[in-house]
Computed example of a mutant assay.
Amino acid sequence: MTDERPRPRSPRRLRRRGRRRVLGGAAALLLVSGGLAAVLADAGPSTEGRLASSEADRSSWPPEGRRPGGPFAEDFAPIGQAPPREGDPEPGPDASTGRFTVDCGVNENGLRNSENVIVAPGVPNGAQHTHDYVGNQDVDRFTDDVGVNNAILARGETTCAGGDRSMHYWPVLRDTTVPGDDADRPGGGLDGNVGRILTPSSVTIEFLGNARGPVVAMPEFLQIITGNARAATQEGENANARWTCTGFGDRAFTDRYPLCPEGSDVVRVFDFPSCWDGEGVESADNRSHIVFPEEDGGCPDGFTAVPRLRQTLVYEVPDGPNFAVDGFPEERHDPITDHSDHINVMPRELMADVVDCLNGGLDCSPSSSPGAVPRPYAPTWENERW
Score class of each variant (00 low, 15 high):
I152Q: 02
F248V: 11
G263A: 13
G162Q: 06
A211N: 05
L222G: 03
G213C: 12
V178E: 09
V215M: 05
V172I: 04
T158Q: 07
V194M: 04
T226E: 11
I225T: 01
P171D: 05
A161S: 14
P200D: 03
R212D: 13
G187A: 10
V148D: 05
E157S: 14
C160M: 06
A211K: 03
N150S: 00
Y257G: 07
F270R: 03
G263S: 10
N210V: 04
Y257M: 06
T244S: 15
F253N: 08
A183I: 00
T226V: 12
P200G: 07
L190C: 12
Y169P: 01
N149P: 05
D164A: 07
A154S: 14
E157F: 04
W243A: 05
T233C: 00
F272W: 07
W243H: 15
W170L: 09
V139K: 04
G188Q: 01
E235P: 00
W243V: 02
V194P: 00
T199K: 14
I205P: 01
G188T: 00
G147L: 03
F207N: 03
G162R: 03
D144R: 15
S274Y: 07
G227C: 07
Q137G: 11
F270L: 12
L222N: 11
S202E: 13
T254F: 09
N228Q: 12
L173F: 03
A232V: 01
R165K: 13
A229N: 11
G180Q: 01
T199P: 07
T199D: 05
R242V: 08
T204Y: 01
S201N: 03
D265I: 04
T199I: 15
R242W: 07
Q234V: 06
L198Q: 13
V178W: 05
D182E: 10
T199R: 15
A252E: 07
E206F: 00
P179I: 06
S274G: 09
T158K: 10
Y169R: 11
F207R: 09
C160N: 02
V178R: 14
I224C: 02
G195V: 02
C245Q: 05
F248R: 15
F142N: 06
L208S: 10
G147R: 08
T233M: 12
A232E: 15
G192M: 11
Q234I: 01
A232H: 13
V203D: 10
D138H: 10
L173T: 10
I205V: 14
W243G: 08
W170N: 03
W243P: 13
N150M: 04
F253E: 05
F207L: 15
T199H: 10
V216D: 02
P179H: 07
T159C: 02
E206N: 00
G247P: 08
R141K: 02
F207K: 08
E220T: 14
E206C: 00
F253L: 06
R268V: 13
C260D: 12
V172K: 01
V178C: 03
W243E: 05
D184C: 01
A241I: 09
P258T: 03
F142G: 08
D265Q: 14
R230W: 13
P214F: 04
R268S: 15
M218G: 02
D182L: 01
V267A: 05
R256K: 14
